[in-house]
Computed example of a mutant assay.
Amino acid sequence: MGSLKVREKKKFPVFTLFFLILLCAAGFMFYMAFKEQVPYWISDYKSKQVQEGYTDFADSADGTLPYDFTDRKTAAKDSDKKKTSEKKSQNIPQDWNGVDWNGLKKMNPDIIGWIRIPDLAVNYAVLKGTADNYYLYHHMDGSYNILGSIFAEKGTSEDLDDAHIILYGHNMASGQMFGQLSNYTDTGFWKKHSYMYIYTPEETRTYAIYDVYNCLDNDRTYTIGFTLGSKDFRKWVKYSIKKGYYSTEFKPTGDEQIITLSTCADSGVINNRFIANCMLVDTQVKEDYVAPTPTAKQEK
Rank of each mutant, 00 (worst) to 15 (best):
K5N: 14
R7E: 14
K10H: 12
F15L: 13
F18Q: 14
F19N: 10
F19K: 15
I21H: 01
G27N: 06
Y31R: 15
A33S: 11
P39I: 02
Q49D: 11
V50F: 15
Q51V: 07
Y54N: 08
Y54H: 13
T55V: 05
D59A: 09
S60W: 10
D71P: 05
T74A: 13
D78N: 12
S79I: 04
K81L: 12
K81T: 09
K82E: 07
T84I: 12
K88I: 10
K88G: 04
N97H: 07
W101K: 00
G103W: 12
K105N: 05
K105V: 10
K105C: 05
I112N: 00
I115H: 02
R116E: 13
P118M: 00
D119P: 04
N123L: 00
T130S: 14
D141W: 01
D141R: 00
S143D: 02
S143M: 00
Y144R: 08
N145H: 03
I146R: 04
A152M: 12
K154N: 13
S157W: 13
S157R: 13
S157I: 13
A163M: 05
I165T: 06
I166Y: 11
G175C: 10
M177F: 08
L181V: 00
Y184N: 13
D186W: 05
T187V: 12
G188N: 07
K191Q: 13
M196R: 01
Y199H: 14
E203F: 09
V212P: 15
Y213Q: 02
D217P: 06
T221P: 01
S230L: 04
K231L: 06
K231I: 01
Y239S: 04
K242Y: 02
G244Q: 01
Y245W: 14
E256T: 05
T260Y: 06
I270N: 08
I270S: 10
I275T: 01
I275E: 01
D282H: 14
Q284W: 09
V285L: 07
V285I: 12
Y289I: 14
T293N: 03
P294H: 05
T295F: 14
